[in-house]
Design a protein around this nucleic acid. Structure first.
Lengths: 343, 343
DNA sequence: CATGCTTCTGTGAGCGTTCACAGTAGAGAA
DNA sequence: TTCTCTACTGTGAACGCTCACAGAAGCATG
């Protein structure tokens, strides 16, 4: 007389049930579940059939209790969340990581550390071993949480180059400097000579490297670096708008601007429109990221594509390798110029 | 001689260690951990001190193994993910749910069911009891996964009204119909009389209810319903653009249009600009959602605010209540008209 | 024929927790 | 005194799985 009433959740079958059904022992079922080594083909087949019949699904809690692994990983955002959730890149990254992990049957836990309290709670949670590793998104890159996790020996992969040079932390990033070079070369090829830049935060490698690429190509072209043409923002739309206003005030003859993110470029477009400059006729605008913001902008943005699908895939690959015992690794992926209407 | 080498993850303290440290039994520690009933103040304090000293964190796997609960919940997206990840609303919802759950110390597992394979895998995962409940985002609302989970007795809360009338599934939604009424009333108050609509999919309650509110107010104002002024899209930017083109072709004298999402409204703006119509002078445009897309649009969109922060909080509340044994519940939240530049 | 090796299988122990139960001590009532 | 009741505490037994180990069977080798 089994409890079978509608609505009631029945107790799911255990490895024991499968073993009985298949006429073998728990150990054999377990071996089949974990790769099938040292199992006869006959037993193999019997167990698989029994699993199918019973609808058995492994109880991950029981497994984790003994293996010490949780078979889950955390996706940690330590940034002020408003900005990142506004940023389409973040979504693409999150989606990519979730799917890459799903291919390994590993669930992703979303962790948002906005306040200091949350940060502490999450750090405890992670160091207590509730996840096997962490995918970290954080732009002000000398992140205290990152440091804490690293010290606790938690496998960690960061998205974007971290600030501290010496720290041996894994990361995956697009080639910021080379992307900036491509864009500035492109603007030069259009005949522009007074090229401004709204770069990212100068305490982050992303902001620094993009500025470096910009300077490099201008110098290479024999143009002087004009500090009036250089401002930095924080990747938000609003900071792009403010940056463009500053540039226009300081260098009214600017005929092009390289903006370090598409979202900021949207703000730049707004400011240019308000100032009565036509894009691209009067001022050419180049973005960075190739996020959905580039397509939403009017005119659509010429931009540098960051391969976020590959970045997420690589982050997961590197993290799993590190969990498997390999050393931390750095991966730099190439960018690509995407021409649209704004240049 | 304990393993203590740098870099190695040490074995975390167990409830046993805490008990020894505090001079009590495992049972007492467990009771302190779970509410502290039937524990003397002295023991209470001793245990708390021991927990602080040892840095003990409960092993959730061991706990889950015996309680049968996983103390985690799933956030499931069964939609084609491209669209939803493009949609800023989705992000706000995801963030809100994560934070609301964090307040209960419950981790959120992100699950994306794009392909049929993933759908099956995730359904198995959930019905196997690996999460205690599911927050579901799905617009074509007679979702097969929803049905499967409901039948398996998995606590479930849907975002948005589900299609099937009879099914007893919990949901939280904004008042679509009333929001539409407010917007159309607003457009009428501006003197517009040829008001078009780009509504949502007509096989979803969102699309149907917004259309119903639109018709209701027009009729109330003594205006005839003109089918040429009615089209529907799928909430994407592209479908808004296409919808506006159809409207302009069929009703060139249109002087206002109510669009059922801000993202679609962006597309509408594009189409209107291309057709040489000024917004709002020639055609007033009203959106829906009040997502970040409304602020990104040029001109900024007058729109109907959906209280996504409250929606996520309510979804979590209703889900936890349901896990606690309460009956499924439906929550409808009020919307609000936000006036900006496009009307 | 013993010995070793390989392939396969079953068994007991134990992962860290909660839960049910038994038991103790002290207070109050009969 | 004896009994009951309440407040508190400790103890074994699970929960479902993996792991180490022991052993069996088959086959080749000494």
């Amino acid at each position: 007389m089994t409890m079978n009433a509608a609505g009631g959740r029945r107790r799911p079958p255990t490895i024991h049930d499968v073993a009985r059904e298949a006429g073998v022992s728990r150990g054999t079922v377990s071996r089949v579940l974990n790769g099938g080594h040292y199992v006869s083909p006959a037993a193999q087949e019997a167990v698989n059939a029994a699993i199918r019949r019973t609808g058995y699904v492994v109880n991950r809690h029981a497994r984790s209790l003994i293996t010490g692994r949780s078979d889950s990983i955390g996706f940690l955002l330590t940034e002020p969340q408003e900005r990142f959730f506004e940023d389409p890149n973040f979504n693409v990254l999150l989606r990519g990581c979730t799917q890459a992990l799903a291919a390994h049957d590993i669930p992703l836990l979303l962790m948002l550390a906005g306040t200091e309290d949350e940060r502490r709670r999450i750090a405890r949670y992670i160091t207590a071993g509730h996840v096997d590793g962490v995918l970290l998104v954080s732009s002000h890159s000398a992140d205290p949480v990152a440091e804490e996790l690293r010290e606790a020996g938690v496998p960690l992969v960061q998205c974007g180059k971290p600030m501290g040079r010496g720290s041996k932390v894994s990361y995956v990033a697009a080639d910021d400097r080379d992307g900036a070079r491509d864009m500035v070369r492109h603007l030069l090829s259009l005949g522009r000579r007074r090229i401004g830049i709204v770069t990212g935060p100068l305490d982050s490698p992303g902001g620094v490297d993009r500025l470096a690429g910009y300077k490099e190509i201008l110098t290479e072209a024999g143009l002087a670096i004009d500090e009036r043409l250089i401002v930095s923002g924080d990747y938000s739309r609003a900071s792009g708008e403010a940056g463009a206003e500053r540039l226009l005030a300081r260098a009214p003859d600017m005929d092009a601007v390289f903006v370090a993110s598409d979202l900021m470029a949207q703000g730049v477009l707004t400011a240019l429109e308000r100032a009565g400059r036509r894009v691209p006729q009067d001022v050419a605008v180049g973005g960075f990221d190739d996020s959905s913001a580039a397509l939403a902008a009017r005119p659509q943005l010429t931009t540098i594509r960051q391969p976020y699908d590959r970045i997420s895939a690589e982050m997961v690959r590197v993290l799993l390798a590190q969990i498997g015992g390999e050393d931390p690794a750095a991966v730099i992926l190439p960018t690509e110029l995407v021409k649209r209407e704004s240049t």
